[in-house]
């Protein structure tokens, strides 16, 4: 049955600096998946994809209906923090996913990307080019990006990546607490957006443990 679909992409930094927080992050993602996957209305209208990146980027959970996948693949740390690889993979993945959804006669809403990093990109010269292709105004499926920075992330970089909203974890807030806030914000966004009749992207304006760098509504 053709539906109106809102695809969500969660893109997580899994570089070595995340090692100590990986359990908290995987747990947060499992909670997000459980909340969204056991909500028939939301599961019917959304699709979910998980991408991990370090020196390379990989699709850990290909775009799926959140209620069809029982166990989510977890993140595992590697060397490097290559933002460019993440953005390039995102562009390619979204392009293929949107084409596949349309081939199934679905109406597809502008995808949403939740981007999370705790560090500085190791490819400072290369990533802006890949990013520009991802947010290219001439590309109809360019996603809305909500960026979250934790720990040592650079506020200016995170602010530049978020096209919709950007958040930096507050000093003094532990990464585990910030990741908890990240997972809750994600869940609230997906559930609210998916149950909205018009499938508007609804992201909370405040996220526990974070400072909002910018709040742009379309």
């Amino acid at each position: 049955m053709p539906e109106q679909i809102l695809p969500f992409y969660v893109v997580c930094d899994q570089s070595y600096s995340m090692t100590d927080h990986l359990d908290a992050l995987n747990d947060g993602l499992a909670q997000l998946h459980a909340a969204v996957g056991t909500d028939p209305v939301v599961a019917d209208k959304t699709r979910f994809c998980l991408i991990g990146f370090a020196g390379n980027a990989e699709v850990l959970q290909p775009l799926c209906s959140p209620s069809d996948v029982v166990n989510l693949v977890g993140l595992a740390t590697q060397a490097g923090t290559n933002f460019g690889a993440a953005f390039a993979l995102l562009r390619e993945t979204i392009e293929d996913d949107v084409a596949a959804l349309k081939a199934d006669a679905h109406q597809v809403y502008r995808p949403a990307v939740f981007f999370l990093s705790d560090g500085h990109p190791t490819d400072p010269a290369a990533w802006p080019g890949a990013y520009e292709r991802l947010v290219d105004p001439d590309w109809a499926a360019r996603p809305n990006i909500i960026a979250f920075g934790i720990g040592d992330a650079d506020a200016a970089t995170i602010g530049r990546i978020g096209t919709f909203q950007a958040f930096m974890s507050r000093g003094g807030v532990s990464p585990a607490a910030a990741l908890h806030g990240f997972a809750r914000a994600l869940t609230t966004s997906v559930v609210r957006s998916g149950s909205d009749g018009d499938l508007l992207l609804r992201v909370p304006t405040q996220v526990a443990g974070f400072t909002a760098l910018r709040v742009d509504q379309l």
């Binding site: 459980a34 056991t38 028939p40 019917d44 959140p66 209620s67 029982v70």
Partner: peptide, 22 residues
């Protein structure tokens, strides 16, 4: 309890086909 977590038995479960998660 669904997927190991407490869940309210909401009307929506009666109106959609059963999926793997529940």
């Amino acid at each position: 309890t669904i997927a190991g977590r407490p869940r309210l038995l909401e009307l929506q479960f009666l109106l959609y086909p059963r999926r793997a998660m529940w």
